[in-house]
Amino acid sequence: MTAVRVLILGVVAGLSSFGVDFYLPATKALALSFDSEVSAAGLNVSLFFLGIAVGQFIGGALSDAFGRKKLLVVALLVFIVASISQIFSSTLGLFIALRSIQGVAGGALAVVVTAIICDENDVRGTAKLLSQTTVISIGMRFIAPMLAGYLVAFVDWHALPAIVSILSIACLIFVLFHIDETLPAAKRRRRSLVHSLQDIWMILCNSRTRIFIAIEMCCSVGLFAFVTGSAHHFIENYLLSSTEFGYVYSGFTVVLLVAVFSNQWLVTKFGIALMMRSSIPVQLFFASALIFTARFFEPVLWLHITLLAGYLASAFIIRLNATAAAVKSIPEVQGTAASIISTISFGVGGLIGVQMTLLSGVTTYALEYLIFASSVFLFLYFLLCLRSRAFNQ
């Protein structure tokens, strides 16, 4: 796969995550513009997440039935129309509805990109290219809040959907001319709802796929706990200002980039199996160190950040490789498999967000407890799976 195609697919896949972080700084401006509460304006992000989950759930099956490129083009068109329409929204309700539609399209885009990569590569190549597209997505997320904050402060919130519209139109043009169909008509599976449900059941009944989905879920618990709880954790427990927290969060983004680059090289050299065997114990070490130092030593900020960075890097590497292995385990329905995994991941993320809110009111160690619990469960499950032929295939 050429560098241009990887770049295009990375940006297309990153539109959904970009659509989350890019709109966050505009929450207060939206509330003022529509004369509503800030909490009500924040629903645009919540429903965008819900839209992503729906798009990921249906996107894989539709791409298996009608082809990758067709769905990619249709989803981009929907994303563009929803983005442009937001500029002319007259009420907050209409804006939120358009954001949810935008999320559905963004979720479908992410799943189809994964399916395209899987179509053209073996397990090792899939993991490597998923790492490369993830680098691009993380880079977009790193830039998004800073750029959005500048636009909201010096222009207006209307500039945000305008920028997103321009970016998605550029993606559509490049997709039309540089991305080929990777699923021939002879291999497509146009299925009824009953048959689609049968495909989902087949995926969940595949022992190898089920193992790696479970591993991915365990990593998602810790990663989403960090995303949803890190602001409260650092600002309340370590008394950081919002600006200081922004620098810390950007630093963690850099850590994830380093982890992705490292995974590209390590997977190519050693393969997914060895990466999983080594990364899972490393993850448990950092999770254990986090909870131990937090409970008994009240560590200084730099030590806590170092341990948390080690956990995030190892968990992210495990999640990337588990996703690649799970999708490649069902070659007949890779698109559906990719959508199921992504939907489960976002479902776990939503539940963890609620759990973080509940636990934060009870203990100051909510983040550490969730990370440690998920890491211990993953390690025990990993030991159990080591004897399984499905894991070692």
Rank of each mutant, 00 (worst) to 15 (best):
Q198C: 10
A153F: 02
V81Q: 06
A105G: 11
F154E: 15
V78D: 00
I203F: 01
G93C: 03
Y369N: 09
E236L: 11
C219P: 02
K70N: 11
G350Q: 13
V135N: 08
F174L: 15
G107M: 04
R99W: 05
S220I: 02
S192M: 11
Q264Y: 08
V45N: 11
R319E: 13
C385L: 06
A31C: 07
Q334H: 08
G139D: 10
L9C: 14
S165I: 04
F177N: 13
I305C: 12
F261K: 03
L151Q: 03
F212S: 06
S262E: 00
F252I: 01
K328H: 07
I169S: 07
L7P: 00
A186V: 05
F224H: 01
R210K: 13
F296I: 10
F88V: 09
I143D: 12
A325E: 14
V38Q: 13
N206A: 07
A110Q: 06
I213T: 10
I117K: 01
V123Y: 00
L256S: 05
D64G: 06
V78G: 01
I58L: 12
E216I: 00
S279A: 15
Y238K: 14
I371E: 06
L308N: 04
P25F: 02
L109F: 03
K28L: 12
L378D: 07
I101Q: 04
G106N: 12
T209R: 00
V155L: 15
Q102E: 12
G67H: 10
A159D: 13
V362K: 12
A259M: 05
R387Q: 12
V267S: 02
P299A: 05
A53M: 14
A231D: 05
M356P: 11
R124L: 11
I291Y: 02
Y150M: 14
L24Y: 11
L301R: 01
D64H: 10
L32P: 00
V258C: 13
T2S: 15
I8K: 02
V248N: 08
V78S: 06
R387G: 12
C205M: 13
G14D: 09
G14P: 03
F49E: 00
E332A: 15
F57V: 03
T357R: 11
R319K: 14
T323E: 10
G149M: 13
L240E: 07
G59H: 04
S137D: 09
T228G: 03
A115F: 10
G251I: 08
G51T: 07
R190D: 11
K70D: 00
Y150A: 15
M202V: 12
V38F: 07
S339Y: 02
A225G: 07
F382A: 01
I173L: 15
M276D: 00
G51S: 09
L386E: 15
L290Y: 12
A26N: 03
I143M: 05
T357C: 04
Y247V: 10
R189K: 15
L43P: 00
E236M: 09
A61G: 04
A337L: 04
I211D: 02
S63K: 03
L50W: 01
T114G: 04
V333P: 02
P145S: 10
M1F: 06
G51P: 08
T228S: 15
R277S: 09
M1H: 07
L256V: 05
